[in-house]
Every structure is written in structure tokens, then in C-alpha cells.
Design a protein around this nucleic acid. Structure first.
Lengths: 195, 195
DNA sequence: TAAAGTATAGCACAAATGTTCGATAAAGGC
DNA sequence: GCCTTTATCGAACATTTGTGCTATACTTTA
């Protein structure tokens, strides 16, 4: 993406937009005026047009305050589930510990779990990581999934071989699991770690 | 957090708000009308007041469209830098390729880079992962950092031993780097992966 | 220096938006 | 039944907001 560089005032406006949108509410033209030192709404208006033409922002002329940073992906808040109870629906509201931001159009069907242990070390899923999974996504052999092993949720690679379901770890120190009643809670679509 | 349950229309409005805010722009009262079947702006207005009193949403009376979902963690949009040029400031706007959602109050000083190669495999940072770094954070020996090796940005563990700076990989297949002019762009604070 | 182009300011206006007021309908208690 | 409470509607109003117009200051070019 090669976009023309920004002038001083264009950059001021752009930076204020980024800061404002973090708060959740896009600013109005006059708020931009106050926060950038520009004294005329038409100045801001001209700058916004330039920013839009050059692909820095996106607007919807039908609505007011409808400014978005171009390329900024829509962010869904994915619920982090504290404890997975066998037999209970995953997305029980009272088990939601926190929300994890995730770049997706909608959080529908998505949930997050904290990983315990190093059984998936070799694909870069470490102890303490948070995995994001889609419960509505059909899992195929080879996908990384969240499965139920007894009454414990576990992250493994799903292998289906001759009709036999295997939860395969990605770490030679761990043994494959041959679940008796295999249940797949969701397909892992993302992994998230904080230092 | 024990909040009173929602009536049918209150839930309709709340669900539409959640859906709208994922798109980035809070809706106006009249947009809520159209999408919930409510026929009067004052009906919506009353429902919004109730939702706010009961702690479901937050509003700023000074601005229009300033509705936010209460409790949704503040999400910063961290710029993903396409190419790091030696000597240039990191956060040059025209090098921003994308934005990564990250749970933080502000994206100030934060930037994201795509990882190339497996030199940090053993700490779970894989090829294609996106690391999030803080350029204003003071890095100590032992931290994972983004350093400049010649004119290439690289993710490594920072080791300072007897005054000698070492960029240490976390993979026995790679050799430590002893940079001549060590430069640390930022301390890695997060890692993000999509499948 | 003069001309041309660009950025900004100042103002005006129509549309969008939040809010208020009174009227009507529905629900519940006596 | 009647009264009270609540929810919704319809319309009106003041403010906010986006946009267009012209004028002025500044920069660039010849």
C-alpha cells in the first residue's frame, strides 16, 4: 500500500481520529477543529476529503460521525470462558471471565479459553496462551480444535483415521488421546499471548 | 455484576447496539428505530435511558451517537508496520498496512510486526505470527525485543552480558547475533496468530 | 514582481440528531 | 368495573452536524 505522505495538519487530524476511535465514538467535524487547532470546519472538511481520497479513512455519507480508519478491521469482543463444564452450553453468560478483542465482523459463535500445559508446544501454543475458537465451524482432520477429554477441555490437533478420532498433541512428550465419546467444542481460529 | 433482566424491546435495542458497535460507528436514535421495529424516537430514547441507568451502556450527553457497551474492554488499534526502514521513524503512517486490535487503553507507542522465520520457535513465536511491541518500554536483559540487525528488524531475546549486547534466538538452529550498532525498536508485549 | 495554485478561515444553510411534551394503548392491582 | 402505572406513539423543537460558498493568507512558479 503506497499512500502519499501526510502534511502536518493532515497528520494532526489523522492522529486525533485514531485516538478518538479508540474511545469508541468517532468525532464530529467541530470536535476535530477544537483538538487540532484548526479554526474552520471547512478546513477540516477539506482535509477529511483528502484523507479519504488517499485511502487513509473511510466514511459513509449517509451517517454523521461515520469515520473509520481504512483497513482497521472490525473488532469483535470474544468472551473468555473461565471453566468448561461437561454437558453445559459453552457460552453460559455466568462463566464469562473477560472479553478478548479479535479482528472479526462478529463475535457470534466465537469463544476464548486459556491454555494449560505444553502439549501443543511445537505449533507455538504455550501454557498461558489464550486460544480463540469458533464453535460453528466444521472441523476437519488436521485442524487444531478444542475437544472434550472426559470432563476437561483440551486443545489438540484433530485426526480422523479409519473412522477413529484422535486428539493429537504437538509435543513428543505427550501421548495421543483416543476419546471414547469424542466431542469437539470448536475449531481454533486464533491464538493470543501477552508478556 | 447483577443487573436487572431486559424486556423484549430492551433486548432488541441492546442486541442492535452490540452489532452496530462491532461495525465501529454507534447508531443514531432513528437508526435504532428502523432496526428494532420501534416507531417513535422517544420510545428508543426511554429504552436507552433505562439501559444506561441499569449499567448496560454508557453515554456522553455532550456528543451524539456516543453510545458504548459497558464493560467491553478498551480496545486499541495497533498499527501493523509493513516495512521497517533503518533510520526512519517506526510509526510512519504511510507504512501502516493494517491495524491489530489489542486490549489496552491506548495504542500510543505500540506497533505490530509480522514475524518471518522460526528463530524464536521455542518460545512459541512462529513464522507468520504478529508480534506487538511497545517502543516506549525500557527493555532489560532477558526481555524479548525487536532489534535492528543491519537494516533488518528482527525479533530476539535481548541479552546484555558484560556490556555486550546479544540478540539471542530461541532455537538451537540459529546463531546469536552480536550487533555492531545495537538498536532496540521496542519490547515485545504480545503475540497474535490466526489460523 | 506578478500570476497561479493551495490551504485555511469565516459564514451560512439544510439535513440529521437528541430531547421534550402530550396523547394513546396496554397491563396490573383494587 | 375503575384507577394507576408503564410502554409506546406522534409531533414539535433546539441543537448538532456535514457541506458548500466566498474571501484571505501563504506558497510556488515563471
Amino acid at each position: 500500500m503506497s499512500r502519499p505522505p501526510l502534511s502536518e495538519n493532515q497528520l494532526k487530524v489523522y492522529n486525533f481520529l485514531v485516538k478518538s476511535l479508540e474511545g469508541g465514538v468517532p468525532p464530529s467535524v467541530r470536535e476535530i477543529c477544537q483538538n487540532t487547532g484548526l479554526k474552520s470546519t471547512s478546513s477540516v472538511h477539506a482535509i477529511l476529503n483528502t484523507l479519504e481520497e488517499n485511502g487513509y479513512i473511510e466514511r459513509d455519507p449517509r451517517y454523521s460521525r461515520s469515520i473509520r480508519i481504512a483497513g482497521a478491521s472490525a473488532t469483535a469482543q470474544v468472551p473468555l470462558i473461565g471453566r468448561v463444564t461437561a454437558g453445559q452450553p459453552i457460552l453460559a453468560v455466568h462463566e464469562i471471565v473477560d472479553y478478548i478483542p479479535y479482528a472479526a465482523g462478529s463475535a457470534e459463535g466465537l469463544f476464548a479459553l486459556r491454555v494449560v500445559g505444553y502439549s501443543m508446544r511445537d505449533v507455538g501454543i504455550m501454557d498461558g496462551d489464550i486460544v480463540i475458537a469458533d464453535k460453528d465451524c466444521v472441523a476437519h482432520s488436521g485442524d487444531i480444535i478444542i475437544g472434550m477429554d472426559g470432563d476437561e477441555a483440551t486443545v489438540k490437533r484433530l485426526i480422523i483415521k479409519n473412522g477413529q478420532v484422535i486428539f493429537m498433541p504437538e509435543n513428543p512428550d505427550f501421548d495421543p488421546i483416543y476419546p471414547e465419546n469424542p466431542a469437539v467444542l470448536g475449531k481454533v481460529v486464533g491464538c493470543y499471548r501477552r508478556y
